[in-house]
Design a protein around this nucleic acid. Structure first.
Ligand SMILES: [Mn+2]
Ligand SMILES: [Mn+2]
Ligand SMILES: [Mn+2]
Ligand SMILES: [Mn+2]
Lengths: 219, 219
DNA sequence: CTAACAAGTTAGATTAAACTAACAAAATAT
DNA sequence: ATATTTTGTTAGTTTAATCTAACTTGTTAG
């Protein structure tokens, strides 16, 4: 049996290792706001259980089993977020904290039902992919808006990372997933960009914002 | 802050004291399948926190605050069961275990939303009343089917206690809440009764079953 | 290259929630 | 009225999950 606490560590490690393939005790400690010695012992425990490759002073990695476990928890998290938005009418900035709790519910039937009712969605309300029931996550090929050039036309596909404040900011600006933006200019001094979308003729987005927006160029 | 574990003790105590007003360490121990010394220390802790009146060797009672806390957890449990049946399509015998977990979610918005979407229901799928948001539970005036006489016509209002097996048995016999039954005869030997309802001309219900069915006589 | 700093580890303490063993009180049966 | 059984309590142990303090290893800046 795997505890709620252990699940949160696995998920943190999965998310931290998603890009580089490895993470440090220190990073998990900061992410979960738990002191390093506690993280250290938990990593040893998860290593005993076969979920983590642990060696003193070496970076941490998930085992294949650990990756699958973590992905299945993330699946429950993202299905829940989607359900809360699509079926219960919550806004995209209200669902993360609730999903953080519901992801730990033990009931395959409950999540299977959600999946069905939603029509087997592949992304959550923030555009992040939902792993399948085997824990396999489709990899995205989107690019960050701050890597685009003047004149590019792109579609907003995902927001990452998606803090509550950022999501509220985007809503206030009528920026939602699927919105098509055209880059009118890029300010070299601070890398802020001016864009055009919907009936917004000229909106300025700071680099702090554009660094979180994943887009697909219009082919 | 009140832990998930403490919530389960409060709920058990609430349900056990619902009729008599008091309960014993032994009863909670059996109900939760937790040994008596553990229950004993927990009762002292809950007494420290102001939820339980504890005195050595005396029966246990909830304080007013304890009653309210417990009723609010039961509210979350029953709202959840109703939501699972009405909005997600679960059967009435599939929802208790899921609700047993979801009742511990901390999110007023989540349960308020459920309540709204359900149209402010007053009973759960098994006919038990849902406490209001102040923890006040409407008291029922139903009677058990095994107290009725030959010739009585009654409407099935609730099933209590509602084990999974009993609920499945009732479904198989097409007995659901709202069904109107007429008592054709009562067998004095074992108190089984023969009833008529819907297009079932003559069904026999054992006293084990009739002792769980709460009904309202047709006026 | 070494001194200083950052990151990782070990050791030991704390709290919550469970247990068993042993004893005490209350209830029940003879 | 006493003996037996059931119920309740106390004491002490265990495991999970956290912490702080102190020490070790690794990294980085002069
Ligand atoms: Mn989320
Ligand atoms: Mn979580
Ligand atoms: Mn229930
Ligand atoms: Mn519960």
């Amino acid at each position: 049996m795997i505890s709620q606490t252990e699940e949160n560590y696995l998920k943190a490690l999965y998310n931290l290792t998603y890009l580089k393939g490895e993470a440090s005790v220190n990073e998990i400690s900061k992410r979960l706001e738990i002191k390093m010695p506690t993280v250290n012992s938990m990593m040893k425990k998860l290593s005993e259980k076969g979920f983590v490759h642990y060696e003193s002073y070496k970076p941490l990695k998930l085992t294949e089993e650990g990756k699958k476990e973590a992905a299945l928890i993330i699946r429950k998290h993202r299905l829940t977020e989607m359900y809360l938005v699509e079926k219960m009418g919550f806004a995209w900035d209200e669902v993360h904290q609730i999903a953080e709790q519901i992801e730990h519910i033990h009931s395959p039937e409950f999540f299977t039902k959600m999946d069905q009712l939603l029509g087997y969605p592949t992304v959550d309300p923030h555009g992040s992919p939902i792993p399948d029931h085997n824990g396999v996550m489709r990899s995205e090929s989107y690019i960050f808006l701050d890597t685009c050039k003047t004149g590019d036309a792109v579609t907003l596909m995902a927001v990452q990372p998606s803090s509550k404040e950022l999501l509220q900011y985007l809503s206030a600006k009528d920026l939602e997933l699927g919105t098509t933006l055209t880059i009118l200019s890029i300010e070299p001094f601070d890398n802020s960009i001016t864009v055009n979308y919907g009936n917004r003729i000229s909106e300025v987005l700071s680099s702090k914002v554009t660094a979180t927006l994943l887009v697909r160029p219009i082919s």
